[in-house]
Design a protein around this nucleic acid. Structure first.
Lengths: 207, 207
DNA sequence: GGATGTGAATGCATTCACAGCA
DNA sequence: TGCTGTGAATGCATTCACATCC
C-alpha cells in the first residue's frame, strides 16, 4: 500500500515536532512540510485507526507511538549485512539505521581477504557463519550489497538462514519465496529517472 | 509516470540479452525475469512509440537505443556530489553510476579537514568552488549525501550553481523550485517498509 | 470555530479481450 | 500461428464535499 511509505514520513516529521516541544498537530500542519495535503494525511491515518481528536488535532506523543507500532519499529530489529565493499561498509556504519531501531549484528563477505577486518564495531565474517549468527541473534532482516551477479546466490543463502526481509542494493531483480519480503534500492535507476525528467526540462545539453 | 521506472528495468534486462547474443525478444520473454506481465511491457513501450514487430517481437539493439534515448542516458551526464562521509565516499566510488553513463566530476564537503583528501580519482573541494566547477563542467545533476540538517542549505547552493536534478540521500524532504527535479532515497524508510510487511508475516518475534 | 473522519467523484494504472499485421 | 498494439473494463489512489464531534 502506498500509504505505508508516507507513514514513515509522518513519523519523521512528528519526531521533529516532538523535539520542538509541540504537543498536538493538525493534519494541515503535519502535511505542509512534506508537500502533501491535509486530506491525504487524514485518509492515511484513518486507514489504520482513529488517532485524531476533532477540533484539536493529533497528540504528537500518542501518534508517534501508534505509527511505530504500525511500522514495526516499536522494537529493535537485528540485521545482517552481506557484502562489505564501499557501499556495504558505508551502510554498516550508517547511523540512520540505528536511530530508527535497526541494529546490525553481523557483517559478511565472500572475499577471504576481507574476513577478519573490522567494520565499525563488527568483524567481517565468512559466509559459512551466516546461519550460526542468524540463529544466535534471531535476525530476520538482511541487507544485500554485493555485485549483481552474486546477489541471487546470497539471497538464497539468506532465506536458507531464516531471513524473512531483504533490502537489496544489487542492480538486479531477486527471486524469493512468497514468505520473504524483498525491497530493492537501485541507485543507477534513480539517476535514470532523474535524467528522464531532466530531458524535458533542460534545453542546453551543456555540450 | 510509473512506466519510466520500469523502462530502466527493461533496459537492464535487454542489456543482459544483448550480452547473451539474443537478437529479438518477445514482450513475454522480457517480462518473466522481471516478475511482470507481457501486457504491461507492451503497454509501457507502446506509450513511447511503436518499437515492436508483430509476429517477431522487439529487436534488442534497436530497443536499447530507443530506451536510452527516452531515459536520457544516450549521453554522459556530469554529476557533482556533496558530502563525503561514509555514504558519500561509497557513492563517489560506485561503479554502477559510471556504467550507466553518469560521471562524477566533482566531490565537495563542508568540513575543511576533508578538503584536499582524495576520493577515487577526485580531490574533495570546498563548497566555495561549487559554482566554478559546475560552470566549467556543465554539470546539471547533483547528489546530496550530507546530514539531514544541512541538506536544505546544500540543495539551495546546488540550485544556485545551476544544478537542475538532485538525488537526495538525506533523511528529509527538500524544498526546490519547480524547474528542479528532486528524487529522494531514504534508506531508513526502506527498512521501515520492510518491517511493516514483516510484521504481518513473522509471528515469532525472536525474543 | 476548528478540526477529524468518510462517502462520492474523479483520475490514474493495470488487466482483459481482441483486432491486426508478419 | 505468433506476436504487437489498443479500446474497454476493472481496480486502486487521490481529491472533493460534507457530516460530525470537541
Amino acid at each position: 500500500m502506498a500509504a505505508v511509505f508516507r507513514l514513515s514520513l509522518y513519523l519523521r516529521e512528528l519526531t521533529e515536532f516532538q523535539k520542538a516541544g509541540v504537543k498536538t498537530v493538525s493534519s494541515l500542519r503535519l502535511s505542509t512540510g512534506l508537500g502533501l495535503t491535509d486530506v491525504r494525511v487524514r485518509k492515511d491515518l484513518a486507514y489504520f485507526g482513529q488517532f485524531g481528536y476533532p477540533g484539536v488535532g493529533y497528540r504528537v506523543d500518542e501518534l508517534i507511538t501508534e505509527l511505530k507500532r504500525i511500522l514495526g519499529t516499536d522494537r529493535v530489529w537485528d540485521v545482517v549485512l552481506i557484502g562489505c565493499g564501499n557501499l556495504g561498509s558505508a551502510l554498516a556504519a550508517y547511523k540512520g539505521f540505528r536511530r530508527q531501531g535497526f541494529r546490525i549484528v553481523g557483517v559478511f563477505d565472500i572475499d577471504p581477504k576481507k574476513v577478519g577486518r573490522r567494520v565499525g564495531e563488527l568483524t567481517i565474517q565468512p559466509m559459512e557463519e551466516l546461519s550460526k549468527t542468524t540463529a544466535r541473534t534471531g535476525a530476520r532482516v538482511g541487507i544485500i550489497s554485493v555485485p549483481a551477479d552474486q546477489a541471487q546466490k546470497v539471497a538464497d543463502q539468506l532465506v536458507a538462514a531464516g531471513i524473512r526481509g531483504i533490502l537489496n542494493f544489487a542492480c538486479t531483480a531477486l527471486a524469493t519465496p512468497a514468505n520473504v519480503v524483498e525491497n530493492s534500492v537501485n541507485l543507477a535507476i534513480r539517476l535514470e529517472q532523474l535524467t528522464f525528467q531532466l530531458r524535458s526540462l533542460v534545453q542546453d545539453s551543456g555540450a
